[in-house]
Design a binder for these strands. Structure first.
Lengths: 211, 211
DNA sequence: TCATGTGAAGAGCTTCACAGCA
DNA sequence: TGCTGTGAAGCTCTTCACATGA
């Protein structure tokens, strides 16, 4: 589509713009300037304009950006213009929290099923989504063309679960488990690493001089 | 301590090195090279050497790094050489998951209390840690010199909870809620933004051409 | 010889300053 | 006039290439 591949940093910011645009649209705000987006996000207005301009000229000089038009463009860029189906693997506290949380917040993402190996959990419903046995993962994933698996099982089951995910044809894993996963190189793993994030936060908590 | 402030990217990687060093130490491996750390982390060996060299010359030429010595140095740099006390605010699924998860994984971090406003939850124990009413937050935080608060309450209570945290003298918040928090500029907020991370993942899930 | 430590070059991203256009 | 879009400058971080020293 575009010449150079989009900078990762831009792709990370686009969903933040999206959230604000959704808010503005809910309040019937039709036009937004890069400065207003800057006030909301904390990024500079120039950076926001550069980010958006990378994909095309979406604004009107002297006026700003049409909120609805810009939102549609960003949705298309990210790939959220058609609803994306995902699965959650692991129906523990984290799996439940992420499921509920995403259903509420994320109109663009649809959790089609939750998988677990515990017979006591299988068959129950979490936010109206059925918990299924891992053996059904492939069938469901193929049927619903699932794009992303959110992995929340305990470390000792993470590798097995990852292999199930790969066998189901899913090529992107959002990994909340602590283990390193061994998967084919065609599978993209994004580690959430909350414990590592917390540790690096502590650097700022202990050594940062507060102004 | 050091001349220039450490690059953020380095601070993000140090805990990853730490995790590997912990593993190596558990297996009585005494020496590790930047190449071995590279194989485990996926970062280049040069980058790892640069990262470490930023804080001093910790290795031995021709040999590598002493595992235990390097671990101690990193602990000191991050500020994990003394155990850091944190609190979890919100005893929902996410709060419970993060509490259990960190207790197991993080020998350097100690959750001293979990806070909630639901009377049905207060008094219960999660992984041996008591759930307390928000009214006790300041007392507990001061007593244990709490450095970080992990915020996992629903959006509608997030701002109130953030204010309680600030009043308790805590200056670093790890925010898992979806709301934007208004706090004094001396307070450092790190947003987990899982839903935004998921959305940017979808960009790679849908547009990435698999090689 | 081998692996660290480091200046220099390079790449990627951000900020600046202003041209361009409603 | 006002706000977008954009080359150029600047900055930060990464990679390269090699000197250094056990």
């Amino acid at each position: 589509m575009e010449q150079k591949s989009a900078p990762k940093s831009v792709i990370r910011r686009l969903p933040m713009y999206l959230r604000i645009l959704d808010d503005l649209l809910a309040n019937d705000v039709e036009i937004v300037s890069s400065r207003e987006l800057s006030d909301e996000t904390g990024f500079t207005a120039e950076q926001i304009r550069k980010d958006l301009a990378f994909f095309g000229a979406f604004g009107t000089r002297g006026t700003g950006y049409n909120t609805s038009f810009l939102r549609d463009k960003i949705l298309k860029i990210i790939g959220l213009d058609e609803q994306t189906n995902i699965i959650v693997v692991g129906a523990g506290h984290l799996g439940i929290a992420l499921t509920r949380f995403n259903i509420r917040q994320n109109p663009y993402v649809n959790v089609v099923a939750i998988f677990d190996i515990d017979p006591n959990v299988i068959g129950k419903k979490i936010a109206d989504i059925e918990v299924m046995p891992a053996s059904k993962m492939k069938e469901i994933s193929v049927k619903h063309d699932v794009k992303v698996a959110v992995l929340t099982v305990p470390s000792e089951h993470a590798q097995t679960a990852a292999e199930d995910i790969v066998k189901s044809g899913i090529r992107v894993i959002f990994n909340f488990s602590l283990s390193k996963l061994y998967v084919p190189s065609s599978v993209y793993i994004h580690n959430a690493d909350l414990s590592i994030e917390l540790q690096s936060l502590i650097y700022y908590a202990t050594s940062r001089v507060v102004i």
